[in-house]
Design a protein around this nucleic acid. Structure first.
Length: 641
RNA sequence: GGGCCGGUAGCUCAGUCGGUAGAGCAGCAGACUUUUAAUCUGUUGGUCGAGGGUUCGAUUCCCUCCCGGCUCACCA
C-alpha cells in the first residue's frame, strides 16, 4: 500500500520537514532554505537508509528512523558552522559537578540565591545586581557532560547535565540540605544525579537561538541541541532563585557560552521511565549506565570491593599474581570446561576452571602468601547465580589452617561491608513475601558441620549419616534429586546443600566435608574420612570455599587416581592427573590453607543485586540476532540515491 | 533441555471477543526570562517479532519458527 493517502493532510511544518528529509535522502545537501514550492511527498513515506555525509559516517549501520535522520542533519549543520569540525575535542572542563557543588555547599551564606560576578571583572553598571541580592565572585567555570533533559522556557533554558561525579551529588546535596534546614530554608530533593546549566538568551543570543530555537535560514532550521548530546559550557557558578546550584552560561572572548561537543545521533530512552527492557539494558549497557544511576552505583561498589580486597590482602603481606587462563589439563575444581585450540602448537587447551594448582605451585616456590583475582570459566548452565565466566579471588597462606582462614574471611567480609555499605548489616534478596533479608556480616559467623546439618535439617539419625541407602531414601522423600553416580560423600554434600541452604541466610561456615569430594584438601587428623574444609554460605548461596591444603604428594597422587576412577564410572566433573603438580608437592609445600571467594556473588551481596548479571558489566548473552530473524547487517548501509 | 509469561511508535506502555491501532515522553511548530518529570496549544511518526494457514478481510484465530524474561534441573 504505497503512498498512503492519509498523509495528505499534514500541516505546513510537517510538509517542510518531509521535504527536507526527502532532499537528504536523495543525497542533496541539507543546507539552504526549505523549499517554498510544494515538495514531492516521499521522504517519510519510504525513507531509505540515510547517509548524509558519506565521508563521515559510511560504515555506520543506520536505521530507518526519522529522529536519527534529523539528528544527522544537525551534525551536518554543526560541521558547517564549525569549519568542518562536528566533533571537537578542544574543550577542557575546569570543574566536575561535585567540585563545583562542593565549592559552595559548606557556606550558609551561599545557600541563598545570589548574583555571581566574574572574579576581577568590573561591576556592569548597565546591569547592576538587584538591591539587596548578595553578590559572589565566581571564577570562570568550564563544565561538560551529557544532557539528560532540556527545558526551554521562553528566553531562558535549563539543561540537566550528568558527569562522572553523578554518584557523589546526592551526598553533597544531602549535606547541603542539612545546612539549608538549619537556616530555615525548605528541603530539596536530594536524589538528583544531574547538575544544571542555566542559559539566558541575553548572555549569548546567537548560541541560544542556534541550539534551542528554530532559526530560519540556518543549515538546519530547528534547534540543534537534543537530549543525549554531550555539551561543554562556560560561565559563572551561582544559585538560582529556587536555590539550585547552577552554571550560569556566559560567553567570553568570542567563545560561545555552550557548545555541542558530541552530537548524539541516536535518541536516549524516555527520560522518566528510562530503559526498562532487561535485554536491552544488558546488551546496551552503555545506555543502561547513562539512564540508571543504581547501575552506576553497583559498579562503583564493585570497584570498591576489588580495591578493598586488594588492600586487605596487601596489608597482610599477600602478593598478587596472575597465572594462566589457558590450561592444558583440568584441575582445581569440579566443573566442565570450555575447550579451545592452539593453532601453531596444534593442541587442545581449556579455559581454566580454577587457578588453584598454579597458585599452590607458587607456595611451593616460596611465595608464602599469594593471591589472584581473575576470571574462571565453567561450561555450565546460566542462572541468577551463575555466569559462564566469573571473577574469583583465591588466596593461599602458608603455616595456616582452614580455621585461620575462617577468621580472615570474617574480617575481610566485615571490613568490605563497612567500606562499601558503611555498615556490617546489609539488606539483600527477597523472601517469599518480597521483603529484603537483613544480613549481619559482623564477625563471628556461625559454624556448622555437614553431619550436624544433616541431622538437624534433613532429620537423619546419627547412625544413618554414613549409610548411603538411608541418605538416598531421605533425599527421595524430600524430593531432592541426587545423581546416580554419586558416592556416599557426594550424596551427603548434595543432600546437605539441598536441605540446609534455606537456613544459611546469615553467614555460616559449613565444615568437615567428606574427603572424596575434596581431592585437593588435607585430611582431618582425627578422622581421615573428612577433610579440613569449609564453605561459607550467605543469603543461602555459597560465597566461599576453603581448606587446609593437602601437601602429601603420595596422598595427592592417590586422590588424583581416584578422580580418574570416578571419571571412568561416568562422573564428568573430575580432575585430570596433574603430574607436574604432584612433582611440585614432592619438593615440599609448606603447610598451608587456601580460600576462594566468588567476587561477583560478594558484590551481589554488598550491592543488593539479586542477579549475577546485574553485577557483571557485560554478562554472557546469545549474540544479537542469533539464528535467523531479520537483523540489520553489519555491512555499511548503501548510500541513498 | 522442560514449564510459564512476553515481543505493538525512538523509549515506557494501553488496545483490538477478526474490519490495517492509541496515550505519555522524545521529535516538529507556537506561547512563556529561574525551571527542575516545567506548563499550555497544535502536530509528525507504526510491515502490531518472522513465516505459513483459515477468512471477503489477520496486529487479533491456528501452526511453525526466532528472540527475550521468569522458573526447574547441573554448577560457584
Amino acid at each position: 500500500m504505497p503512498g498512503s493517502p492519509r498523509r495528505a493532510d499534514r500541516g505546513p511544518h510537517q510538509r517542510a520537514l518531509a521535504a527536507k528529509l526527502a532532499a537528504l535522502a536523495d543525497g542533496a545537501p541539507p543546507w539552504g532554505r526549505w523549499p517554498s514550492a510544494a515538495p514531492a511527498r516521499r521522504g517519510l513515506d519510504r525513507m531509505p537508509p540515510i547517509d548524509i555525509d558519506p565521508a563521515a559516517i559510511t560504515g555506520t549501520p543506520l536505521e530507518r528512523n526519522a529522529l536519527m535522520a534529523q539528528r544527522l542533519a544537525k551534525v551536518h549543520a554543526l560541521r558547517q558552522a564549525a569549519a568542518g569540525v562536528a566533533y571537537p575535542n578542544d574543550f577542557a572542563p575546569s570543574h566536575t559537578a561535585a567540585q563545583a557543588m562542593h565549592w559552595f555547599s559548606s557556606d550558609p551564606v551561599h545557600l541563598h540565591p545570589f548574583v555571581a560576578l566574574e572574579q576581577g571583572a568590573p561591576m556592569d553598571l548597565e546591569r547592576p545586581p538587584p538591591a539587596g541580592a548578595p553578590v559572589v565572585f565566581s571564577p570562570r567555570v568550564h563544565m561538560a557532560g551529557r544532557v539528560l533533559a532540556i527545558n526551554v522556557k521562553g528566553k531562558v533554558a535549563f539543561l540537566r547535565v550528568i558527569d562522572r561525579t553523578a554518584a557523589e551529588l546526592p551526598g553533597l546535596r544531602a549535606a547541603e540540605n542539612r545546612a539549608r534546614v538549619a537556616t530555615g530554608l525548605p528541603e530539596r530533593d536530594v536524589q538528583v544525579p544531574t547538575f544544571q546549566f542555566y542559559f539566558s538568551r541575553d548572555d549569548d543570543p546567537d548560541t541560544f537561538d542556534r541550539l534551542f530555537k528554530p532559526t530560519e535560514g540556518a543549515p538546519w532550521e530547528g534547534p540543534l541541541c537534543d537530549v543525549g548530546d554531550i555539551v561543554g559550557g562556560e560561565g559563572l557558578w551561582f544559585r538560582t532563585r529556587t536555590g539550585e546550584q547552577s552554571l550560569w552560561l556566559k560567553s567570553a572572548a568570542g567563545r560561545p557560552a555552550l557548545r555541542i561537543l558530541t552530537k548524539a545521533v541516536r535518541p536516549l530512552p524516555d527520560k522518566f521511565h528510562g530503559l526498562a527492557d532487561k535485554e536491552t539494558r544488558l546488551r546496551q549497557r552503555y545506555v543502561d549506565l547513562v539512564m540508571n544511576q543504581d547501575v552506576r552505583e553497583i559498579f562503583r561498589k564493585r570497584s570498591m570491593v576489588l580495591r578493598g580486597v586488594r588492600r586487605f590482602l596487601d596489608d597482610r603481606g599477600y602478593v598478587e599474581v596472575e597465572t594462566p587462563m589457558m590450561h592444558t589439563s583440568l584441575g582445581g575444581a569440579a566443573a566442565r570446561p570450555f575447550r579451545t585450540h592452539h593453532n601453531a602448537l596444534d593442541m587442545p587447551l581449556y579455559l581454566r576452571i580454577a587457578p588453584e594448582l598454579h597458585l599452590k605451585r607458587l607456595v611451593v616456590g616460596g611465595i608464602e602468601r599469594v593471591y589472584e583475582i581473575n576470571r574462571n570459566f565453567r561450561n555450565e548452565g546460566l542462572s541468577q547465580r551463575h555466569n559462564p565466566e566469573f571473577t574469583m579471588l583465591e588466596f593461599y597462606r602458608a603455616y595456616a589452617t582452614y580455621t585461620d582462614l575462617m577468621d580472615e574471611v570474617e574480617a575481610l567480609i566485615a571490613e568490605l561491608a563497612l567500606q562499601v555499605c558503611g555498615s556490617t548489616t546489609v539488606h539483600w534478596g527477597s523472601e517469599a513475601g518480597g521483603t529484603p533479608r537483613e544480613i549481619r556480616l559482623a564477625a563471628p559467623f556461625a559454624r556448622v558441620r555437614i553431619a550436624d546439618g544433616l541431622q538437624r535439617w534433613a532429620g537423619i539419625a546419627e547412625a544413618g549419616l554414613g549409610d548411603e541407602r538411608v541418605l538416598r531414601a531421605r533425599a527421595a522423600e524430600l524430593g531432592v534429586h541426587i545423581d546416580g553416580h554419586a558416592t556416599l560423600g557426594k550424596v551427603q554434600v548434595e543432600l546437605f546443600e539441598a536441605v540446609a541452604e534455606p537456613h544459611l541466610v546469615q553467614p555460616t561456615f559449613v565444615y568437615e566435608y567428606p574427603a572424596e569430594t575434596s581431592p585437593l584438601a588435607r585430611r582431618n587428623d582425627r578422622d581421615g574420612g573428612v577433610v579440613d574444609r569449609f564453605e561459607l554460605f550467605i543469603g543461602g548461596i555459597e560465597i566461599s570455599n576453603a581448606f587446609s591444603e593437602l601437601n602429601d604428594p603420595v596422598d595427592q597422587y592417590q586422590r588424583f587416581a581416584h578422580q580418574l576412577d570416578q571419571r571412568a564410572k561416568g562422573d564428568e566433573e573430575t580432575m585430570d592427573l596433574d603430574i607436574d603438580y604432584v612433582r611440585a608437592l614432592e619438593y615440599g609445600m609448606p603447610p598451608a590453607a587456601g580460600c576462594g571467594i566468588g567476587i561477583d556473588r560478594l558484590v551481589m551481596l554488598l550491592s543488593g543485586a539479586e542477579s549475577i548479571r546485574e553485577v557483571i558489566l557485560f554478562p554472557h548473552m546469545r549474540p544479537e540476532g542469533a539464528g535467523g530473524g531479520e537483523r540489520p547487517s553489519a555491512e555499511p548501509a548503501p548510500v541513498a540515491g
